[in-house]
Design a protein around this nucleic acid. Sequence first.
DNA 1: TTTATTAACGTAACCGGTTACGTAAAAGTC
DNA 2: GACTTTTACGTAACCGGTTACGTTAATAAA
Lengths: 335, 335
Amino acid sequence: MTVTIMDVAERANVSKATVSRVLNDQGGYSEKTKRHVLKAIEELEYNPNAVARSLTNKKTHTIGIVLPDLISSLTTNFLNEIEAVAHKAGSSIIVCHTESKGAKTMKYLKLLHEKRVDGIILASTILQKEYYDYIEKTKIPIVLLSTDSEYPVSSVTADDYAAAYMATKYLIQQGHKKVGMISGNKEEWVAGNHLPRVEGFKTALLDHKLSANEDHVVYGRFSCEDGATGLTKLIGQVPGLTAIFTENDEIGMGVLSAAYQLGIKVPEDISVIGMDNVKFCEFLNPPLTSVSLSHSEMAEKAANLIFEMIESNKAVKKNYIVSHRVVERQSVNSL
Amino acid sequence: MTVTIMDVAERANVSKATVSRVLNDQGGYSEKTKRHVLKAIEELEYNPNAVARSLTNKKTHTIGIVLPDLISSLTTNFLNEIEAVAHKAGSSIIVCHTESKGAKTMKYLKLLHEKRVDGIILASTILQKEYYDYIEKTKIPIVLLSTDSEYPVSSVTADDYAAAYMATKYLIQQGHKKVGMISGNKEEWVAGNHLPRVEGFKTALLDHKLSANEDHVVYGRFSCEDGATGLTKLIGQVPGLTAIFTENDEIGMGVLSAAYQLGIKVPEDISVIGMDNVKFCEFLNPPLTSVSLSHSEMAEKAANLIFEMIESNKAVKKNYIVSHRVVERQSVNSL
DNA sequence: TTTATTAACGTAACCGGTTACGTAAAAGTC
DNA sequence: GACTTTTACGTAACCGGTTACGTTAATAAA
């Protein structure tokens, strides 16, 4: 049916070994036979079978990405960047979407191992002991993207604590004294990096001699809707509230939207700063000030790292922390 | 190194054929040997090699998705939905990002064939003759997602013409007489469905005895920035403009943002209707009225269709058109 | 001219599974 | 008890490549 290396060999009157050699530029054949082989390939429209090749080579030129439900622009950021790097490295990516369910993650890891991917990027997912053990056993190179871990594995992360601290400090420097935070789900196992964010927020407040207790933070999940409900809740909990730090831009967007509906003016009545500096920040009304975590950069680093690990098959382990900065727009007032 | 079916066979004192049989529940072995085999698998932590399996089975349980640069929420919509369906069908997805470059598309098609994917979903990409010929030759099942084609291939699309017509008619019915459109790039080969959108727009105008010439349409690319520049341009080109139809929500978002910056009130001064009904519409200020194209539904249908085609390996060809409707929010005023 | 070296291949084993076919033992039939 | 059928396997070929090794012919060296 489909044409194989054997067909090419026969038509070119050589052995399949020779065909394989010219295919891989390995030398060991004359110019003339090379031409013959190439001609046969051309005529038969031969397309090598990567599956067969992978079997002997023990390399699939495929890496797996597993990620939970994320803000769409984050997912896209990650995926785009990783895919671009992978493509340059001559590899493809299999994406696995875990829907925030732990069980599915383990299933996916097994699946990816079955498919013999060359490496795995695990994004925004806490590395459970179970996962770690499995990865250790299978020896698949792995890098964590946007999560740290207690286990010795490569990772590319942002310093969430410091970033949150910076966001909060920025608000304080603009003169705000009553500031609240809207966070993701307390129990949420995804991302797993909101606790540092809450800590950074509180510490910044405390460091500047401002009060900071649990009333100052409101928990939701990770979406726009939470911004809306969070806003009213927060206003109730902290009297005289003038500024809000939202754990991510999507929540920030929700706050902006809710404020608009409630007739609360941003930034005149209340200032908002988000986090992630996602693309749409610029186009919100008002444009959302946000602390940039350069997700693209993270993803790119993670992708490069995984290929580095794959190539030098020594067990290199590296941990990168990308920088952050606040990008000022118009959602924060100075008092 | 890694444990193979042979290792299992030896430990269980059977042939690898038998191991394979119990692995695939094929019968032809006693309960006792089954237990032995299972025990050996357990003890050795055997994990079958999908690559080897694919080689004989001629099935990789992998499908390829190729898509160009899209609005991130669209991409995510597509990917999520397709991945979910694929996962249920026991398959994985390889995503290929063409960055709106035609050359890359062909490369990806070849790559996917090399990797012997079971099927391909080609999203928002015009099916060039070259692609079609290649697909025909390789006999890979393919379905087009969000693009039609002159060639006989399966597809799941929206009726862009009708949807644009509906959007425009909606504006007219709200009393608008001077309405303009901001479209994507005229020459853009991606999406390929903006021409019908422009046509739908113009026809709706004409059908209601309103003027519609090329001045009423402004072309950009597909992003927020185009909304911003498009707005000022359009205001210049059509005097007395009261409403704008944007080819997609991202442009719509850009218009909203630009209007805010320019002090133009939406919808009081100018009404805006978008297209796609992407998630963030609800959270814009004001919330953006948009005609819903149910992309999730499209993606799901496309995914189901591709697996249907893969299973019944007859060359089934089906063409679905999903419905559309305008979802009213607050960006359109009635005069 | 004879011998050593190298170039240009072919042969066959291997990667890790699946499966058609053959066979011995167990079970069923008369 | 002899014969047929069924069960429970093992053997070996196969999927489509890669590669170690062996062989022959051409070329270089002596």
